[in-house]
Design a protein around this nucleic acid. Structure first.
Length: 490
RNA sequence: GGCGACGUACCCAAGUGGUAAGGGAGAGGUCUGCAAAACCUUUAUGCGGCGGUUCGAAUCCGCCCGUCGCCUCCA
């Protein structure tokens, strides 16, 4: 029997119990980036959030198929009808092929996500690789009477789809009333949106179609690719709140009009990132790329910072806030190192069905963690449960009646699953196996020299060794039993 | 103008009817040659303001103030 998961469905604006379309499986599609620039901290929040959600579904036993697109064509800088393709704009400026821009920033994106500990999606389909399918979907919509061609453009006729506006809570009348005057006259209704766009002379990224050379409209790729890999009706569609309208609204219209079936069961939207209280924008100069952030902070610290707030809450990025998160995370790492020392060579197998309650009540902390995660992926709550446990563990270790190596090993593995495997906030293998390297032998050599100096009460020399090591990023810690351990920071 | 969120201590942030999680920072203490780490104590009679419903509200309702987002490309 699986854990019951509740999630906030944007479509109904309330928390709902999760029932998969197919027993034991979860199909999830998340809107990916348009690769024309380096990813910023907002992408970080979005994809870290969904990464944690996917990891949690897998943890409770679902077989997850996670699809996230790469948009490598089609978005315009201005509005739906004017302006340049963002990718082409960059390409023209640098006088290179648009696909070079795409490759450069797609690699940059995956590199940043890897560093954030984001597990790669199972499928990362690209829009340009699915032009044929997009044309097919457009043809189908025309055939079914939901779309019309006008001068090489194809538009979706919003008036044919009464449900339009349900997701975003908008009404077509309001949209039309408040809309800017549409300069183009070939639309039947200003709210209609493009499925296929005619390529003007000089437009580089173009494909032949029944309506002449052109390129797909903005929303079409997500409908096409999500249904291709997940089926016409699937479980979860995620994305940033800023995409709720018009993007997701249009996806629903296109998809349901084409298939006559419900498109997505649960819509999940993550909230936005602000920097020092205001939205990121290039004009304000407060645009923080992930690569910028990683210069100041460990990527896992950035991840931890993101997960310390709820995915549906806005997140305000500031150096102070991330720094504070990093110090908190150090506590977790310290405890893990202590447990590893106590565990020695032993490794614990975690049986979540029968967790011990003594000397540390692992069962209780697990239940708290699980309840938080199952309640709309409340990662801050889950982290709080882990930190309560840390205090408990520290007290136990410090009390003298040290826990057995078996229990330390079990506890280590236990935290490794909750914080490491699911939340992804523990450093991965390389950092944790300090092991027997020439580096650690050398540090131990200095520890020995310092120990001799201390025995001779030459504290000046002892402190000098310690501070020299510290300046190299090696922190020494004298234990009660007279031994000295070290940790390497940064 | 329309739609929608949010406002919890010095900072970050959970909590959606039963009497304020967690992290950072600060203060005092234990331990230590000194540090570091850790632990203990402490820091919101109050959750933007004013009313209302209730035995009881941060949590529900109304009004006001403030911030943010969407309505146009955006995670």
């Amino acid at each position: 029997m699986k854990t019951e998961i509740y999630l906030f469905n944007s479509l109904t604006r309330q928390k709902e119990k999760f029932f998969p379309v197919a027993e034991g499986r979860v199909g999830i599609y998340v809107c990916g980036p348009t690769v024309y620039n380096h990813s910023h901290i907002g992408h970080g929040k979005s994809y870290v959030s969904f990464d944690a959600i996917v990891r949690f579904f897998r943890f409770v036993g679902y077989k997850v198929l996670y699809v996230q697109n790469i948009t490598d064509v089609g978005h315009l800088t201005d509005n739906a009808d004017q302006g340049d393709d963002k990718i082409e704009k960059e390409a023209k400026r640098d006088k290179i092929n648009p696909m070079e821009i795409v490759e450069t920033f797609m690699r940059s994106y995956f590199e940043d996500m890897d560093r954030l500990g984001v597990i790669r999606p199972d499928i990362s389909p690209r829009a340009t690789g699915h032009i044929v399918e997009q044309i097919e979907l457009t043809k189908k919509l025309i055939k079914r009477g939901y779309a019309y061609e006008a001068g090489g453009n194809v538009y979706f006729n919003v008036s044919k789809f009464p449900e339009y506006g349900r997701l975003s809570g908008k009404r077509v009348e309001d949209l039309v009333a408040g809309a800017r005057i549409d300069v183009r006259s070939d639309k039947k209704n200003p709210a209609d949106f493009a499925l296929w766009k005619k390529a003007e002379a000089g437009h580089i990224m173009r494909w032949p179609s029944p309506w002449g050379d052109g390129f797909p409209g903005w929303h079409l790729e997500c409908s096409t690719m999500s249904m291709k890999y997940l089926g016409e009706s699937f479980d979860i569609h995620g994305g940033g709140l800023d995409n709720q309208f018009p993007h997701h609204e249009c996806e629903i219209a296109q998809s349901e009009a084409a298939t006559g079936r419900p498109f997505v069961k649960y819509w999940l939207h993550n909230n936005m990132v602000t920097v020092n209280g205001t939205k990121m924008s290039k004009s304000l100069g407060n645009f923080v790329t992930l690569k910028d952030a990683f210069k100041k902070f460990d990527p896992i610290t950035v991840r931890f910072f993101v997960l310390q707030s709820h995915y549906r809450s806005p997140l305000d990025y500031s150096d102070d806030a991330v720094e504070g998160a990093g110090k908190g995370l150090d506590r977790l790492k310290n405890v893990m190192r202590e447990l590893l020392d106590l565990a020695g060579d032993k490794r614990g197998e975690v049986d979540f069905a029968s967790l011990p309650e003594e000397p540390i009540n692992l069962r209780r902390y697990y239940n708290e963690w699980l309840a938080a995660m199952a309640d709309d992926f409340n990662t801050p709550g889950a982290i709080a449960a882990i930190f309560e446990m840390l205090k408990d563990i520290n007290t136990s270790i410090g009390s003298g009646n040290a826990m057995t190596s078996e229990f330390a090993a079990l506890t280590y593995s236990f935290i490794d699953v909750l914080a490491g495997d699911v939340l992804g906030i523990l450093p991965t293998d390389d950092n944790r196996s300090a092991g027997k390297s020439i580096e650690s032998d050398l540090v131990n050599l200095f520890i020995g020299l310092r120990s001799d100096a201390r025995k001779g009460r030459d504290f000046k020399l002892a402190d000098s060794i310690r501070s020299e090591l510290q300046s190299m990023g090696v922190i020494l810690e004298d234990k009660k039993d007279g031994t000295t351990t070290f940790k390497i920071v940064r």
